[in-house]
Design a protein around this nucleic acid. Structure first.
Lengths: 366, 366
DNA sequence: ATGAAAGCGCTAACAA
DNA sequence: TTGTTAGCGCTTTCAT
């Protein structure tokens, strides 16, 4: 009776080829609950219950249980999560939309989100929006089709029009880094305003009066807050703000390079650069090298977003460090709060403090 | 007759609440084909055909077609890819398993794979294995459950035991960066042997005789080939190989730091360092800075894997550059070759050339 | 302790 | 031109 159910009275089926390690069949037909059930002459329900760990709950007899699990192992059974998800209306999947995974800032966030998600038993569908609003919208659509249960989004731009559908559909969502102050969506971001103000004040207190900003994408929240921080600092010190010192409109290194070149040519009076991202700073470095300007002797520089290499640059760079991992962590937390209690109104945003890391790229002048 | 089908003779259903921008329902029930069909008094098939762009093929009448698409839009219909995938046995999803997305090297690959996948209409399930074999195996299992149609894997280690199931199941797969020479799985990697040999020879031709290697994980293919390249170079120049000069066993920056510290203390005769990864190099930089050694005056250094910042370091670093984007591209190509023609036996591996970028971290001595 | 049956949302023969 | 039907693989009442 041990393996009782396994011996079938008449065998008229084809040999019931098990894993069929075929070497040319297009796809070796997947093992399913049904196959196991048939073989064992039990019902699919029973197999399902055993294989989804509910044997206890349903008081499946020990012999049946072992028979099922053995055969499952032998057949190399892999439950189909699609079917499961369809039935249960639970995909255990969240979407992660990021402008550019190869940017270390976003890569760090992605990493953290990946860890967090796994701890909750969730998988991640990754979309790279390439800093492109249209692709971002596409990605969002795609993720909905795939029934993700939540969304971590580093939105690309200034417009949130494509998000209203999602919030209407009550899809849990959290914005990271960039957000929309007028939209009441949960977000995590660095305190860009304070960070930029402190950085600018450091420059001012070192005697700099003519400080150029290498901006990122205009209208995006990090950029706008950084600009405001910069302006606040100037204002506090009764310094004039000169709009033509705010240049560029992308966070990429290209932009840093070009704008710095231009600046060097047109604004001989600039004594300090404030780069709004690590990539921007790298671009500036390239331009500066080409033009044989030395940091900090010829020009000072501060960059937003610290990086591991910053300390080892020719001129160890003074930076505004963002709590990258923490941002990822908080994002995950905010997201699963929503997923786990959908009834609760989603919370507002969270601003994480930055810290100014003073190295040697700023020179005291005058 | 324009919107003919849309006007229903008797309306006895509840107002058929469309998007139902409800503010507290747990989940506003998703719009399905059936709902649309019922509303329009047509069959699900018709709706399906229209909404999956097959109206032409099935000669759906223009009024019906527009009625359907209008209502779909109005209801904010989102096709359920789970159901679709289940039916079609096609998930349009590939898995991407990476040891650490926050490592710029892997981030670059991930980025490229993401782009490639999208171009083929596929999505990516991302798993971060944290350089941990067990987590990698878990990830692989998970991805199978989710019916991915293919796999891009940067395997973590030296063992491939957990891969045999997958290849037996004929799951298309391509290995990136690290691979298993004895397993005939398709892979893309840099030509680590040549790269390392060239780097070492540069060192040798600059008079260095005592060159230490900061290794990565031992037994992994990149590491082993780099070691062999290093040894080949020594052999060619009839230099002795000293096993105690091969230190460390992780690609992380911690390891670079610690091993460099140790080296500095115990091996005063070392004149050059060969770091097997960018992270390792960063760690070395940290240790060197702490010990007040200057590059290249006190010690020379070469690193595997070029990075954007390498040129701007205090000592612009000489590096072995890997064709990162190309690796991602090729990986995607190899994968979709398999997905699209499963009958063809998968190809062997592809080795991409590295290039030595000479900067100023190596000093001529003696 | 186990089975039968319905159904998640979608598609594709096969009919009509 | 459109509808009917049978499933894809799984879970879960409701029976027994």
């Amino acid at each position: 009776m041990e393996i009782g159910a396994a011996k079938n009275k008449r065998l008229r089926r084809k040999p019931a080829a098990p894993p069929a390690a075929g070497r040319r069949g297009p796809t070796p037909p997947q093992t399913t609950l049904k196959r196991i059930a048939d073989q064992l002459k039990v019902s699919m329900s029973t197999v399902s219950r055993v294989l989804s760990g509910q044997a206890r709950r349903y008081r499946i007899s020990a012999p049946t249980e072992t028979a099922v699990s053995n055969l499952a192992r032998q057949f190399n059974f892999v439950p189909n999560q699609l079917a499961r998800g369809l039935r249960l209306k639970k995909t255990l999947t969240i979407g992660l939309v990021i402008p550019d995974v190869s940017n270390p800032f976003f890569a760090g966030i992605a990493h953290q989100v990946a860890l967090g998600a796994r701890q909750h038993g969730y998988s991640i569908l990754l979309c790279d929006s390439q800093e492109n609003l249209e692709l971002e919208a596409q990605a969002l659509g795609l993720l909905r089709h795939r029934q993700v249960e939540g969304l971590v989004l580093c939105p690309v731009g200034t417009s949130a029009a494509h998000l209203v559908d999602l919030v209407q559909a009550h899809l849990p969502i959290v914005l990271v880094d960039r957000y929309f102050p007028d939209l009441s969506l949960p977000y995590v971001a660095a305190d860009n305003l304070t960070g930029a103000r402190e950085a600018t004040e450091l420059l001012i207190s070192n005697g700099h009066r003519c400080i150029a900003c290498l901006q990122g994408v205009r209208g995006s929240s990090p950029n706008e807050f950084r600009v405001r921080g910069y302006q606040q600092a100037l204002a506090r010190h009764r310094l004039p703000v000169d709009a033509s010192l705010l240049v560029g409109d992308s966070f990429g290194e290209q932009s840093g390079y070009i704008e710095t070149k231009l600046l060097l040519r047109n604004r001989k009076d600039v004594t300090a650069l404030f780069a709004f991202s690590n990539l921007l700073a790298l671009g500036a470095l390239r331009a500066l090298a080409e033009e044989h300007r030395r940091i900090p002797d010829d020009i000072s520089i501060i960059a937003f977003d610290d990086q591991p290499y910053a300390a080892y640059l020719a001129a160890p760079m003074t930076t505004v460090s963002q709590p990258r991992s923490e941002m990822g962590d908080v994002a995950v937390k905010l997201l699963f709060d929503q997923i786990q209690s959908p009834e609760r109104e989603p919370t507002g945003g969270i601003l994480l403090p930055t810290s100014l890391i003073v190295r040697r790229s700023v020179k005291k002048i005058k």
